[in-house]
């Protein structure tokens, strides 16, 4: 039985609208590697350009945060569920020159 990776809502448009995918993998890193190979558009939302998990991407194996395990080297076994859970951050700093909003009231 392979490892199941749960895909959060914001990433489903890049994963064929699927909410999960299954892979044979011995570690979390291997499973995420399979995921981002099958769904290449996911990669930039999960990893920085130098290949590190983004700070607001939380990965759990079953109910354990991999930051408190062996991070991406955390071993997985058949039947495990890997969950990608967003955290949300932001705030004012140097305002970026984005285009003017529409529909503003």
């Amino acid at each position: 039985m392979p490892v199941k990776v749960m895909i959060p809502s914001p990433l489903r448009p890049y994963a064929g609208k699927r909410d999960s995918a299954e892979f044979s993998a011995r570690t979390v890193g291997e499973a995420l590697g399979h995921l981002t190979t099958e769904f290449a558009e996911l990669r930039k939302h999960l990893f920085t350009e130098d290949g590190k998990l983004r700070s607001f991407v939380n990965v759990y194996v079953n109910d354990e945060d991999i930051r408190y395990l062996a991070k991406e080297n955390t071993p997985t076994k058949d039947g495990d569920t890997i969950s990608i859970i967003p955290s949300i951050a932001g705030g004012v700093y140097l305002a970026s020159p984005s285009r003017s909003p529409v529909g503003q009231r």
Partner: peptide
């Protein structure tokens, strides 16, 4: 379902900052 997030910009315009963009998820 959770379709997005709101936050305030005290004494700043209602425009996303670079920090907002760096930390944003798509779709939301």
């Amino acid at each position: 379902e959770v379709v997005g997030w709101y936050h305030s910009h005290p004494d700043h315009p209602a425009r996303p900052s670079e920090y907002d963009r760096d930390h944003a998820w798509p779709w939301y």
